[in-house]
Design a protein around this nucleic acid. Structure first.
Lengths: 142, 142
DNA sequence: GCGCGTAACTTGCTATTAGCAAGTTGAGGA
DNA sequence: TCCTCAACTTGCTAATAGCAAGTTACGCGC
């Protein structure tokens, strides 16, 4: 597993220790926006993460308190990953990245309605996504 | 230089292609908040970036339109890097990361007054930083 | 105009990490 | 009891990071 040494107490560096790589934020994207919650669902993402890298990142994200994992009660077969409050609080970062890419990437796949709402009603959009995330996790556990 | 293949048109992935590594956002931090603008100033940053990695990232950030470089008019000896509009527009991402780390890192070096203003008057803080960045670049070129 | 110092890199080598394919484990269902 | 499938692990190769040393080139003092 990638060794991370704390090189400074700079808050930017602290964040990069947790998600400063190519894959961690894509896993968070899947959890926040795509409703993907299992290992095999993450594997199916269009970017094609390698199996060992995915396993490594999931362990790491759990160690860092960004996600939790538990065996699915109903099916018993799959492990379900869920965002913690610390993980959900990275939502603003993801939204800013999406807004930036929507501006500067001519071929972006960002949905126009989503981007429009992001620009016109960011607080409402953020609150709605947080509600969705809170609800889906309570449904699973009931 | 690190090869980047576009694996998808997802806006999150687009952003990660540009700054999804340990060092790019630290260089942007230096440019945005610390007034560092030259190769040797970036090298002096507390995290200790390797010389070849720094050279690689500066080339890449310039290729991606995040920074521009030009020889300093007055001293003639140093190359001065500056943020483009596209680069400055990553300011929200940096501010969110700082806010998140200030919340979750018990040993953060983030300045309390800065964090306080970030929480109480984010638009004003962002506008002030943008003004500073615009001004410093116009001073250099006059 | 000629060393000297310094800024900005480049190069060579080793250590780490990513990527890919194949193998393993363990629970559930027929 | 076997089959399937989810969730990993392992082995190997390619790419990237890290470190130390070397190179180039400009400006300044003499």
């Amino acid at each position: 597993m990638r060794a991370r040494r704390r090189r400074s107490d700079c808050p930017v560096h602290f964040g990069l220790e947790v998600f400063g790589d190519q894959w961690s934020l894509l896993i968070l994207r899947d959890l926040m926006f795509k409703g993907r919650t299992t290992y095999s669902e993450f594997l199916r993402a269009e970017e094609g993460i390698a199996t060992n890298v995915l396993a490594d990142r999931l362990v790491r994200l759990e160690q860092d308190g960004i996600v939790t994992s538990e065996r699915d009660e109903r099916t018993g077969r799959s492990v379900r990953y869920r965002l913690t409050a610390k993980g959900v609080d990275l939502l603003p970062v993801l939204l800013d990245i999406i807004a930036w890419s929507a501006t500067y990437d001519a071929h972006t796949a960002a949905e126009p309605e989503f981007v429009e709402r992001l620009r016109s009603d960011r607080p409402g959009l953020e609150a709605a996504i947080r509600r969705d995330l809170a609800q889906s996790s309570s449904i699973e556990s009931s």
